[in-house]
Computed example of a mutant assay.
Amino acid sequence: MTDPEIFDRAARRLRRDRAAPGWPGHDFLRRLMLEGIADRLATVRREFRDVLDLGCADAAFGLPGAEITRIDAGTAFAHAANGIQADEDRVALSPASFDLIVSAGVLDQVNDLPGALTLARRALRPDGLFLAAFVGNTSLPTLRAALRAADPAVQRAHPQVDVRAAGDLMVRAGFALPVADVEGVPVRYGDLFGLIADLRGMAATNVLRDRRPLRRDTLAALAAAFQASADPDGRVPERFELVFLTGWAPDDSQPKPARRGSATASLTQALQKRL
């Protein structure tokens, strides 16, 4: 028996298709993710020839000299990028076909995240690199608090992955040398509707399978609860958390952790010498 899916796949595709025309006006989080991925990639001294852009959006990721395959859950993004329309946890990827996979801004809306990570790891050649970023679980604390105040009986915010769980999932998927880290992005909004416009523009609104539309009275209560957190200048501080993942497909050339019990010096003796 399989677990019920959290996200509505058809609604997610529709959200991405609707966001595509106005994407450049709301893509600031993905641009920051790509900058972070580029910074991490710059520390790796090797060439990557066969690259997969998983969740390509507007195909803003580029790498000179590489052949890039692009995949997106949205039909509009996939077609505009001459790519493939597919969900990240259902895409058919040939084993050992890429030496680099990047993914920015999509893994937080995948039903089977462990499955998507496992598919990516299997699609990498030995010693291939995986770099990803997505919105983490401490994002939008002001909006989440306002949602609880305005409509406590209904789940409207997506469940999200924290950085520790993300690292554990990388290990479960079979990645070697996994690293998970976090960067915060502070933002400020004049009102709730400015934030909603950004979330719609980046295809990040509610795609839960059991979502319910907001009634007018609930929306009014939500807007008031959100505005109650405004600074003296009338703007509401908010925050996004970006989780970055780095991992390698296993290879014999990679450094291995020391075998337990193989140390030749005693920690106790070393500490005693310092006292």
Rank of each mutant, 00 (worst) to 15 (best):
A145K: 09
G247V: 03
F98T: 00
T218R: 14
L242G: 07
I84Q: 11
F7C: 13
E5L: 06
M33I: 09
A204L: 13
G234N: 06
L93P: 08
P95D: 14
R18A: 07
A176Y: 07
F240A: 13
V182I: 12
A96V: 13
D17C: 02
A76L: 12
A60E: 15
P232Q: 15
S139N: 08
I6R: 09
A224C: 11
V91T: 11
D217I: 11
V44Q: 13
F244V: 06
P95L: 08
A223S: 10
D127N: 04
P237Y: 05
R259C: 03
R15M: 15
A150G: 01
D17W: 10
A104Q: 08
K273N: 15
A228D: 14
A221V: 09
A221Q: 06
A42W: 12
R13I: 10
D89E: 07
V161D: 06
F193H: 10
D87H: 00
L129S: 06
D39A: 10
R121N: 01
A76M: 11
D3H: 03
M33T: 02
H26A: 14
D233M: 00
P141I: 08
A133H: 01
R9M: 15
A73S: 13
F98W: 06
F7W: 15
C56G: 11
E238G: 05
T264Y: 03
A149I: 07
D112W: 01
V171C: 09
L117Y: 00
F77N: 05
G247H: 06
M202G: 00
D168M: 05
V236I: 08
V187E: 12
T2K: 09
A228K: 10
D58M: 03
L41K: 12
G194F: 00
A38D: 13
T264M: 04
T138W: 01
A86E: 02
F244G: 01
A221C: 10
N206F: 09
A165L: 14
M1N: 09
R70P: 14
P213D: 13
G22W: 01
A116V: 02
F48S: 05
S229N: 06
V102C: 07
L54P: 12
P178M: 05
R274K: 13
S139L: 02
P257H: 13
A116Q: 03
G105L: 10
G201I: 11
R188W: 02
G74P: 02
L219S: 12
S94D: 07
G74D: 11
Q269E: 14
A220N: 13
A223H: 06
A223D: 04
R40W: 05
L169H: 08
L54M: 07
I6V: 01
G65A: 01
R148D: 10
F77D: 06
D251M: 04
L208P: 00
V135C: 09
E183I: 08
K273Q: 15
R239W: 00
G167Y: 09
I6T: 02
A116M: 00
N206T: 11
A149Q: 12
A203H: 00
Y189M: 02
S97G: 07
L169I: 08
R30P: 02
D198Q: 12
R164K: 02
L107V: 05
A19M: 04
F175I: 07
P255R: 04
R260H: 04
